[in-house]
Design a protein around this nucleic acid. Structure first.
Lengths: 114, 114
DNA sequence: TCCTTGAATAGACGTGTGTCGAAATAGTGA
DNA sequence: TCACTATTTCGACACACGTCTATTCAAGGA
């Protein structure tokens, strides 16, 4: 009905999103990961963790003007989204990125020739 | 209203998350895009729009068990995040993806070990 | 001009989120 | 055992978000 007139463009199919017709169940599974990255603090946390092999909470926290509990909360969100994992070694807790998770999101968005 | 506001996506984030930590100002600029994709409905909307050359609201809406205003609201969020753009042609409004915006996010997530 | 249809806006409602300080938990070392 | 530190959890608060209905705006046709 509405698609009667279509502007033909040279725009290539742009990305993974364009190839998968993303079912509702897939969207429900993937959206929380984007949501976790949708907060500036968490995005920076993820970047800090990703740019190091691993990052101690005690090194992360002082980089933000936020309380320890708040940082801990954000780390928990990233953890529950599957974007990072953590390991306690003695007194300190170290966070590592989960590259597979980031990669899967990246390829979803990445322009792919097709 | 169409084309109400435009986010500058002409200069995509330069480096992957793993390359170096994100400055607070960059995080503030980029996080809203992830946030926009962080809702299952919006993620599916983006996928539907990206998989077609352009998509009419009248074709998008019936694919969700949601009211028209709700879909309109989600499209506005995507628009204000700079992920889609719209154009009115006669009675109907057509949405198109902005591949540059998606790509800049994709590049950020690409975990290319350099 | 009025009427109909597609889409966006306004306003309201319940729920979720980001933040804090206080308290609890985990581990170290004396 | 006790004290001390790092981190998480708890409980509370203000604010943001997703959804709805009702209304308004935009465009086309009689």
């Amino acid at each position: 009905m509405c698609q009667d007139r279509r502007v033909t463009t040279d725009r290539p199919a742009c990305c993974g999103l364009a190839r998968e017709p993303l079912a509702a169940t897939d969207a429900e599974r993937i959206a929380p990961m984007f949501k976790a990255l949708g907060d500036p603090v968490r995005l920076r946390l993820a970047a800090l963790i990703a740019s190091a092999d691993e990052a101690c909470v005690c090194d992360l926290t002082p980089q933000f003007p936020l309380s320890g509990p708040t940082i801990s909360h954000h780390l928990k969100v990233l953890r529950e989204a599957g974007l990072v994992e953590c390991e306690r070694r003695g007194t300190w807790v170290y966070y590592r990125i989960r590259p597979d998770a980031l990669q899967s999101l990246g390829t979803l968005l990445q322009v792919t020739p097709a």
